[in-house]
Nucleic acid binder design. Sequence first.
RNA 1: GUCCCUGUAGCUCAAUGGACAGAGCAGGACUCUUCUAAGGUCUUGAUGGGGGUUCGAUUCCCUCCAGGGACACCA
Length: 568
Amino acid sequence: MYTIQKAKTEFLQAIKQAAPAGFIPALEDLETPPDQKMGDLAFPCFDLAKSLKRNPAEIATELAAKIGPKGLIAEAKAVGPYVNVVLNLKAFGEAVYGEMKELAQEYGMSDVGKDKRLMVEFANLNSHKDVHIGHLRNLFVGQAAVNLLKATGYDVIPVAYINDLGLHVAKSVWCMKTYHKDEDVKLENRIAFLRDVYIEANTLLEEQPALVAQVTETFRHLEEQRGDEIALWKETRAWSIDYLKQVYNELDLTIDHWYFESEVIAKTKKIIEGLIKQGIVKQSEGAWIVDLKEQDLGVNLLIKTDGTLLYNAKDLGLAMKKEDDYHPTRSIYVVDERQSHALKQLFATLKLMGFERELQHLSYEFVTLEGGAMAARKGNVIRYEDLRDELLGEARRETKSRHEDWSKKKIEKVVRAVAFAALRFSMLKQDNGKKIVFNLKEAVSFEGFTGPYLLYTYARIQSLLKKAGRKKAKATTATLTHPTEHQLVFLLAKYPEIVFDTAQTLAPSMLAQFLFDLAKTFAEFYAQVPVLTKEGPDLSERLALVRAVGTVLAQGLELLGIDLIDEM
RNA sequence: GUCCCUGUAGCUCAAUGGACAGAGCAGGACUCUUCUAAGGUCUUGAUGGGGGUUCGAUUCCCUCCAGGGACACCA
């Protein structure tokens, strides 16, 4: 049990003893006062007031009077209708340090997920298309979810599902075959070529709808793996996969298994044949569907009138393949909110098939531009590389202006860390349920509630520790009297709860907010409390505090997938 | 038309049904002969409208308004 939980338990015990017999307060009743000056933990007396039919403030006063200093509690006081306790910084702080030392890298982790295998599907990119900023949210939210679930003890299998055989691919291949045959595309132009071809295909099809028949023909050939398009598909697919791997690698995504749409087609067809026999899949208006009207989900369209498979059909094959490969007890699909209906249909269809695993849609709102949604077919997207380079450039300017004497290598290391921290944090700091309206000016800002601010805090900590040299840190808290010191100790203790809650809800913004609070409190401490100026117990205890804050900051940022640097 | 999400300060966002609704940016005023000023301090400024439930509502319910999304051949 973490120290924070011990403190809460002690507080509850004290309340229970002070309250009339039979009253049993629960852990969830406890709150955090809005201002630490009012105390560290709070117990609201409203429920008690109601059952006793008395004024909550009076009850708070009575209860507080009965609670004396004991264990981790230094003092109890009534503040209006609340009983607040101030924790004994010495006992509490030392318990927290003890725990941090004992658990080291595992501080904050837990084992609720022990013995449970869980699959997280994310990073579902399309071949033959660019990676744009909308995808980044998926990549970062997914990776954070993976990290957090691992930290709470789950056996997590992160997988990506690449759509290398959708209609978009057929359009591209058709366009290349028809209008760009034998064109020599240089290595460095491959991705740009694919992008242009895709836009060209969409424009042509819009202008001349009759051409759709040709695309359908190509699509059918690709699905059946025959025809002269296959070689072209294979070649360009490889270009794309190379590119995607490079991006994933650059973004440090940990993906155990890559699934491809092209490899689930045979399985999907077999499944559908079975479902037709069972009467689950029926023909309707020339297409093949699963009727989900009873579940209020309309119809799940699996096979088009032209005989080609739809995405939702192939997801059935994928689900079965995942089951065969890993048999996870629970599957999480990290997909944007716009597809929640399609996923509900998928889950409902799997259920009809007798598939009993727990399925969960981790949904997030999409990223849009100020002028509206992005669309690759129109070409109005902000490409990942463009944004990245913009960020790198900005980071380079800032870093160079601050450190004229640094070597190029050193600068580049910092530049990379700053740019990627900014990118990742900007996508994770906001609630998953809220749309992100992308704003370049904001994205390249490194001040305030941003990744670089957190990096900067960490760099200052490292600098302090470096300057302290061989001076000993002492993991006690007897001389820590400044309010920010008390706050910092409390935040360190709270970290495990935050990690737990963030993993439960899979809402990385919660952890991002917490880390920012921690950094901000540290910055206040840093401005107000000198650490290295005088020797003595103050120095060694403050050093220990500084080091502990650095540790939690580093571990928390690591869960969000953000790399740290010691100087910037 | 049906369903889902969102509406909080000039802008972008916080707030397990609780204590004076918090941050960041932008604006204004300070602050580097103290450890990194990518920092700190002070300051201006907000719950879309109307009902209801509750001791207490940004949060829950109803309704209206506004924006976004989904709803059979895209993914």
